[in-house]
Amino acid sequence: MASSCFPDGAAAACSGERYNFAAGPAMLPSAVLAQIREELPDWQASGLSVLEQPFTGSPFKGLMHQAEQGLRELLGIPPNYRVLFMHGGATCQFGLLPLNLLAPGQSADYLESGYWATKAIAEARRHAPLNIVASGAGHGFRATPPLEQWRLDPQAGYCHITSNETANGLQLQHFPELSVPLVADMSSDFLTRPLPIERFGLIYASAQKNLGVAGLCLLIVRDDLLKAPRAGLPSPFSYALQAEQQSRLCTPPTFALYCAALMLRWTGQQGGLKAMARASLHKSRLLYQHIDASDLYHCRQRPADRSAINACFHLHDERLLPVFLREAELAGLLNLQGHAAVGGVRASLYNAMPLAGVEHLLAFMGDFERRHG
């Protein structure tokens, strides 16, 4: 690990390093930012910015095809699954899932694993009856309910899970094989590890974590779940109609799609999802080991359920939190404030976060504890 760069008790950065630990929109790789900067005024020598490209033109259709193929190769997506590039973020899908996947009056199963699962449940309940298979609320969402405690309904239209709870620092380590379609919100840990795609009926993820910038939600949906839209559902929100039109039923979020294509290429160049998983585990283990050995910091989450992507922790003396955050920012460690519903500190370790960023954070944390512990 690099030596401490906070001499004389000061928390000022010594090398100009700056690392963005925001939960989202998240940092982008420097190589991707450089390519965006270079191509933005004139994309593919067309004389037009990528912001001005018609989505019905051959160049942009080619870009969408490349993005889909890149995703299929990274995840090994079978041919009986469709890839959709939808507007908005994952929150839009909270209500669109029951409207697209359930018959009128049909119920769905939901695992209440944290802040975002609770939000998904509240929205889905506006459109369909739900069964909560298990909940971690009684323990403050400090652990994920194990599969043996789930009370599943074999007649449910689907079972919804949140693979990674960004606010609570929890992550599902394994995905069950169920008799009903498994639906997963994977916004925060999408593309951070290989996935058994065949176990899922539908996966959805906002782009602004590991796939680029805000405004795009990516869906992977099995063919048999593409049903005729309910009466009253606007056509652009129909999975079936968007699949028929190759995500071009209306103007897609073109710039976000362009950024996603760059991110998919970059992910492949780094070694793909096995390499991303190794890096995530290494970065998070370094951080959790430091926290567990500390007298100042502590992690409330059960170790087996801790997220490799969003590491959440607290200071034993919460009065020090504003000082910690202020000095961290001066040290070039940005956006470490925990979610408003949880508090504390949150370090988001998405694919673009280099190991050097975690090492810089650990050096700062060690120096801060020496001065305040």
Results as ranks from 00 to 15, higher is better:
Ala2Asn: 14
Met276Cys: 13
Leu325Trp: 05
Ile220Val: 14
Arg72Cys: 02
Ala156Arg: 14
Ser179Met: 11
Ala156Glu: 00
Leu362His: 05
Asn164Leu: 05
Arg265Asp: 05
Arg82Asp: 00
Gly105Arg: 14
Leu273Tyr: 02
Lys209Ile: 04
Ala128Gln: 03
Leu226Met: 00
Tyr297Asp: 00
Arg125Glu: 11
Ala311Ile: 03
Arg370Gly: 11
Ala103Leu: 13
Phe190Glu: 04
Ala184Asp: 05
Glu359Val: 10
His290Arg: 03
Gly332Trp: 06
Ala108Tyr: 11
Leu40Ile: 12
Ala2Cys: 11
Val32Pro: 02
His127Gly: 15
Leu216Tyr: 03
Leu315Arg: 06
Val133Gly: 01
Gln171Asp: 11
Met86His: 04
Ala304Lys: 05
Gln149Glu: 10
Gly140Gln: 04
Leu101Met: 13
Leu296Thr: 01
Glu68Leu: 04
Val50Lys: 13
Ala308Lys: 08
His282Pro: 00
Ala214Lys: 07
Tyr258Thr: 03
Glu327Leu: 08
Gln155Ser: 11
His339Phe: 03
Asn310His: 09
Gln171Ser: 12
Gly76Glu: 00
Arg278Ala: 04
Phe60Pro: 02
Gly95Val: 11
Gln35Pro: 15
Thr267Pro: 01
Leu262Phe: 10
Gly138Met: 09
Leu281Cys: 14
Pro79Val: 07
Arg193Trp: 06
Val358Ser: 09
Arg230Trp: 02
Leu362Ser: 06
Tyr110Arg: 09
Gln44Lys: 14
His65Ala: 15
Ala340Asn: 00
Tyr258Ile: 01
Arg126Gln: 14
Pro7Asn: 08
Ala340Ser: 02
His174Lys: 03
Leu84Trp: 05
Leu40Trp: 12
Leu264Asn: 04
Arg125Pro: 02
Asp224Ala: 05
Ala260Leu: 07
Asp367Phe: 04
Pro229Glu: 00
Lys209Leu: 05
Asp367Pro: 06
Asp42Gln: 06
Asn310Cys: 06
Gln66Phe: 08
Tyr115Trp: 06
Ala228Thr: 14
Pro129Arg: 09
Pro59Arg: 00
Arg222Ile: 07
Gly57Val: 14
Gln44Val: 08
Pro253Arg: 03
Ala108Arg: 15
Leu111Pro: 13
Ala256Glu: 11
Ser113Arg: 11
Pro145Asn: 06
Leu84Gly: 02
Leu249Val: 04
Gln106Trp: 05
Tyr288Met: 02
Gln53Asn: 11
Arg18Leu: 12
Gln173Glu: 12
Val345Asp: 04
Asp42Tyr: 09
Ala256Trp: 04
Ser348Asn: 03
Pro25Glu: 07
Gly366Ala: 10
Pro41Cys: 01
Leu97Phe: 07
Leu320Lys: 12
Lys119Val: 13
Glu198Phe: 05
Val50Thr: 14
Tyr204Val: 00
Ala2Gly: 10
Leu241Ser: 06
Cys217Tyr: 12
Asn131Met: 09
Phe141Lys: 02
Gln173Lys: 15
Leu333Tyr: 09
Pro176Gly: 00
Thr166Ile: 15
Ala340His: 01
Glu318Cys: 01
Ala240Val: 08
Gln44Ala: 10
Ala228Gln: 15
Gly57Gln: 15
Asp224Tyr: 07
Pro234Arg: 02
Ser307Val: 01
Ala260Pro: 04
Phe364Cys: 09
Met353Val: 12
His316Pro: 08
Leu225Gln: 00
Ala214Glu: 15
Met263Pro: 03
Thr166Gly: 14
Gly215Glu: 00
Thr144Leu: 15
Ala256Val: 07
Ala22Lys: 14
Thr91Cys: 13
Gly62Trp: 02
Arg193Thr: 09
